[in-house]
Design a protein around this nucleic acid. Structure first.
Lengths: 168, 168
DNA sequence: TTGAATTTTCAAAAACTTTTGAAATCTTGA
DNA sequence: TCAAGATTTCAAAAGTTTTTGAAAATTCAA
């Protein structure tokens, strides 16, 4: 398989993959393009390679910066802005985990804390069923939260080393 | 907070949460409703409680069954079908991990295997950048695949026990 | 077997998300 | 300061997904 073709495959699959994870196709494709590019790219480079409009490119690049996955860099003597993606996949994964934890897991746990204190007789089977479900989710959620916290702080070798121990 | 209100909060938040994970709102809400219900529910119960149409209810119930999260049960002497959700959250998580692994991670790893064999001189910086990115993702992906495999087979105490060891 | 109850299907409508592109704003070198 | 180049914004258009509801199919008790 030729490089051009392989790149296209990668970019388009990464885009499709992203849509299963609540990330829009273009954002995932821009990310993929930056991941496989040897050099920094401009917005115009990306617009051309992915066939997307200026507004679309701009919006999604900014969102990637917001997620901490892409960095804007200034090349001295150049007027245009250039962009690069973090290439270390372990760092990318940690960054995504960190953001999703903050944006989704933590608010959910705060809600569950409140919901657990529902009024009424715990012997009522409807109340019991509600409280049991909420407590169960909370318990697993809190554990996941702690685990992810530690993971975000860890380096790759530590992580893989531990997994090997854990699963041998 | 009263039970009715707490249930509504839970159902609506679970729905919003689901949309961040590529699951549609209604499917997540039906799941939430079944999770907090003490008794099996019919399709009509769910239509009424969630204010959704017959077709919508039917489609999403079937999708939940497809994911292995909900079971259809027949109550002797009753004409209607009843539904219950798996209440053990650890089992729910394992089931979701198992399905997503099969539907998303495994196909992605098969693609990466192919893309790694791109033709050309590995000293060309464009080829190097592509191959390095693909290899890096593949390496982490394979590790995740193994880990999730073990997790899917494990029971909760084993899992939490190990995490505690790992992170103490 | 029949027919009322129930479930399933699916085309069209509604809702929601993404993309476009032109205008507005900002930036910087001369 | 100016103006050309670059970036950002955002309303409208296009595209996608979800929902509806009525018709078709299926089920089952009598």
């Amino acid at each position: 398989m030729k490089l051009i073709e392989a790149r296209q495959q990668f970019i388009s699959s990464w885009g499709a993959f992203g849509t299963h994870w609540g990330i829009n196709r273009t954002m995932a494709q821009i990310h993929a393009l930056l991941l496989v590019s040897a050099d920094p790219l401009t917005q115009d480079n990306m617009m051309e390679e992915l066939n997307i409009s200026r507004g679309n490119a701009n919006m999604n690049i900014r969102e990637l910066i917001d997620w901490g996955l892409v960095e804007r860099i200034i090349i001295p003597g150049e007027r245009k802005e250039y962009f690069v993606a973090e290439k270390d996949i372990w760092k990318v994964v940690k960054q995504i985990v960190k953001e999703r934890k903050k944006r989704e897991l933590e608010p959910m746990l705060r809600l569950l804390d409140q919901l657990e204190n529902v009024e009424g007789d715990k012997r009522d089977k409807n109340i019991k069923s509600f409280v049991d479900t909420v407590s169960g989710i909370k318990k697993l959620g809190k554990q996941a939260d702690k685990t992810l916290d530690t993971m975000v702080k860890a380096d790759e070798n530590w992580f893989i080393g531990n997994l090997v121990k854990m699963f041998k």
